[in-house]
C-alpha cells in the first residue's frame, strides 16, 4: 500500500538517484548501440509533436515562391546534402551512423506540411545536430528552402545539379565557385532574387562581403560562403565581379505606366511623402562608390531588398540606414515601380 511517505520519498529520492547516476557516468552516451526502443519512441513523439504544435503559429503562403529555387538548391548542395543526401549521390557511411540518422529528405519531406518544414529549417531540432537557419530575420530565405524541399523528390541527379550548380565552373577556385553557384559564371545572378554582380562597383561589393562576414548584413545563403574567407580573397572576388561586363537582367514584361511611375520616383522622388529621388545616390558615375549601381539589376531582388530595408531587417555597408530611412516611406506599389524601372534601365556607361 502506497503511503504519502513513499510518494514524498520518491519525489525527493528519484532526482537524487538520477543525478548521482549521471555524475558517476552510469548513462552511456555512446552512439554505437543506438537508443532503447522506448527512448527512441519518446524522442520521436516529442519532436514530431513539438514541430506540429509550434508550426501552428507559422503563417504559410498559399503558393510557394519558386524564384528562390536556384539559390536554395545551391545552399542545399553546399550545406545540407552532406547529411540529408542529394539525388544520385550515396551518403557517407559516417553520416549513416549518426544518432539520430539524418533523414533522406527526398523520401521524408512529404511527411511534413509547409509550415512544419519552415519551423524545422528556421529553428533546427535540438539534440539531433540539425542547426537553425544562420540568419534569424530572413524568413524569405527559409521559405525559399521550403519551396526547394518540395521540388527535391522530383529531381534526378542531372536535374538537381543543373538547379544547384548551373552556374559553377568546376575549375574555379573554391571561393569563386561558392559565388558562381548562385550568382552565375558571369555574375549575372541565377534566378530573379539573386543579385547580378557583374559591373557592380568594386567598393560596394567588397563592403557588402565584409558586411556579410561581420554579420552586419544577414543572410543564410551568404553566411556559408563568406565565413572564414580571407579578407584579401573577398577583395579579389569583389574585383573579379566588378570587372565583368554588366548584362541586362530581366526580360519579363512590365506595363509601361509602372515603369513610368518608377522613373518619376527615381528621378524626382515623392516630395509629398519625403521620399528623396533615387538618382541623388544611385545614378551617375560621380556618386559615392559605396552606393550601389542599380541599372539592369533584377527587379525581384531590388523589391526584396527595399522591403528588407523598410522592415529594418537589412544592414549592409555603413550607409545602410540612409536607405532604410528612404525605404520606410515607400509603399509596395512604389517599390514595385521603382524596382521595375531600374531593372530596365540601361546598364551602359553614364
Amino acid at each position: 500500500m502506497i503511503r504519502l511517505k513513499h510518494v514524498v520519498l520518491g519525489a525527493v529520492g528519484l532526482p537524487i538517484v538520477i543525478l548521482l547516476g549521471a555524475w558517476v557516468g552510469f548513462f552511456n552516451v555512446g552512439a554505437s548501440s543506438g537508443h532503447w526502443k522506448v527512448t527512441a519512441w519518446f524522442l520521436q513523439l516529442a519532436m514530431r509533436s513539438a514541430v506540429r504544435t509550434y508550426a501552428l503559429a507559422v503563417d504559410a503562403p498559399k503558393t510557394l515562391d519558386s524564384r528562390g529555387l536556384p539559390a536554395a538548391a545551391g545552399h542545399f548542395a553546399r550545406g545540407c546534402a552532406i547529411c540529408h543526401g542529394e539525388p544520385g549521390e550515396p551518403r557517407s557511411p559516417a553520416v549513416m551512423r549518426m544518432l539520430p540518422q539524418p533523414p533522406d529528405l527526398a523520401l521524408t519531406v512529404g511527411d511534413w506540411t509547409d509550415a512544419q518544414l519552415f519551423r524545422i529549417v528556421k529553428h533546427g531540432i535540438r539534440f539531433t545536430g540539425m542547426p537553425a537557419w544562420p540568419a534569424r530575420d530572413r524568413d524569405d530565405e527559409v521559405w525559399a528552402m521550403v519551396a526547394f524541399l518540395r521540388e527535391l523528390p522530383k529531381l534526378d541527379a542531372n536535374g538537381f545539379r543543373d538547379l544547384a550548380l548551373g552556374g559553377s565552373q568546376p575549375t574555379a577556385p573554391a571561393a569563386l565557385a561558392d559565388c558562381t553557384r548562385c550568382h552565375g559564371g558571369h555574375g549575372g545572378g541565377r534566378g530573379d532574387l539573386v543579385p547580378a554582380l557583374a559591373g557592380q562597383k568594386e567598393a560596394y561589393l567588397f563592403a557588402s562581403l565584409q558586411a556579410y562576414a561581420r554579420g552586419d548584413r544577414t543572410s543564410g545563403f551568404m553566411a556559408l560562403p563568406v565565413t572564414g574567407v580571407d579578407p584579401a580573397d573577398l577583395a579579389a572576388l569583389a574585383r573579379h565581379f566588378a570587372a565583368q561586363p554588366s548584362v541586362s537582367a530581366d526580360s519579363d514584361q512590365v506595363p509601361a505606366e509602372v515603369i513610368g511611375r518608377g522613373q518619376q520616383i527615381a528621378e524626382d522622388g515623392i516630395p509629398e511623402r519625403n521620399v528623396p529621388a533615387c538618382s541623388g545616390c544611385h545614378i551617375g558615375s560621380d556618386k559615392n562608390p559605396l552606393y550601389p549601381r542599380l541599372d539592369g539589376q533584377h527587379a525581384a531582388y531590388l523589391e526584396r531588398q527595399l522591403k528588407l530595408f523598410r522592415s529594418e531587417s537589412r544592414g549592409g555597408t555603413r550607409f545602410w540606414h540612409i536607405m532604410a530611412t528612404a525605404a520606410q516611406r515607400l509603399t509596395d506599389d512604389d517599390i514595385r515601380a521603382v524596382s521595375a524601372f531600374f531593372s530596365k534601365r540601361s546598364a551602359g556607361p553614364q
Partner: peptide
C-alpha cells in the same frame, strides 16, 4: 562635390 557625391542633393 562631396555634397553631391553622398546624395545630399536628393533632399
Amino acid at each position: 562635390s562631396l555634397f553631391l557625391r553622398n546624395g545630399c542633393g536628393a533632399c
